[in-house]
Design a protein around this nucleic acid. Structure first.
Lengths: 124, 124
DNA sequence: TGACAACGACTACAGTTGTAATCCATATTG
DNA sequence: CAATATGGATTACAACTGTAGTCGTTGTCA
């Protein structure tokens, strides 16, 4: 199973709008991210080349849509981030986030419940 | 307060060994990451140019050391990761990690305690 | 003291990225 | 229909990256 292709920062912006709504034309995407249409077109082309997007022709223009769900990319990026910055260890990263970020009471509660569920059993 | 300079993947490897032990000569760094000395020298030079490393001369060679603590970079990279992948929201990222990564009983316990402490007050 | 090894400085070079512009064909508008 | 706007294809181009090689100097070993 081939890994999702590598997506750059600007490309990620493009993917985001297409994960929110697709298919879209190039101009629609450009409009939503508020970027220069030419630039966005370039990015769309690169993403197609990388296999992150497909398109279908609608009259004279293309309709783009993602080939993979956002979650796949999130997982990939997260792993790469963990590897790079935390030597692949999730716990130090979790500790870092919990310690440095503002969390509301509700969020803390949510996370605590999640950990509880995690603690009982759905282990591998 | 100027942000820590942007560090690429290969450069990060170099920084890691210097955060573990410094100062080191170029060859020592190369040895520890097991990379080609020439390549490592290039990276060291770039990091100096970027301001991520300083060096002092020791005889005919340089001794390199980081200009900033690892934590600064970790914070920077983490923020940029959150922004890119999770729209700047920490909680979804935390949820993602807790759900997708294997955590030992002890790690879960550690995180739970951390959340508890977080819940009582020490905002910052 | 002469050959060689190691150093830093500089150079190389292709691939990626961000940001567009140019070119040509077609669609739209007056 | 003519002028223009728009679309995709192609081209541009500098900065950044990964990965080294070349050059000139100097310390070291035989």
């Amino acid at each position: 199973m081939a890994r999702p292709p590598q997506i750059s920062g600007a490309e990620w912006e493009v993917m985001k709008v297409l994960w929110e709504a697709s298919p879209l034309t190039g101009s629609e995407v450009a409009e939503r991210i508020g970027g220069h249409p030419k630039t966005v077109k370039t990015l769309l082309g690169r993403l197609v080349r990388k296999g992150a997007l497909r398109y279908t022709e609608e009259g004279n223009r293309y309709l783009y849509r993602p080939t993979l769900a956002r979650e796949k990319y999130v997982a990939e990026e997260s792993k790469s981030f963990l590897r790079r910055v935390f030597g692949g260890e999730a716990t130090p990263a979790l500790v870092h986030f919990v310690e440095t970020v503002d969390l509301s009471e509700e969020e803390i509660q949510e996370l605590r419940e999640l950990l509880d569920r995690r603690a009982k059993g759905e282990k591998s």
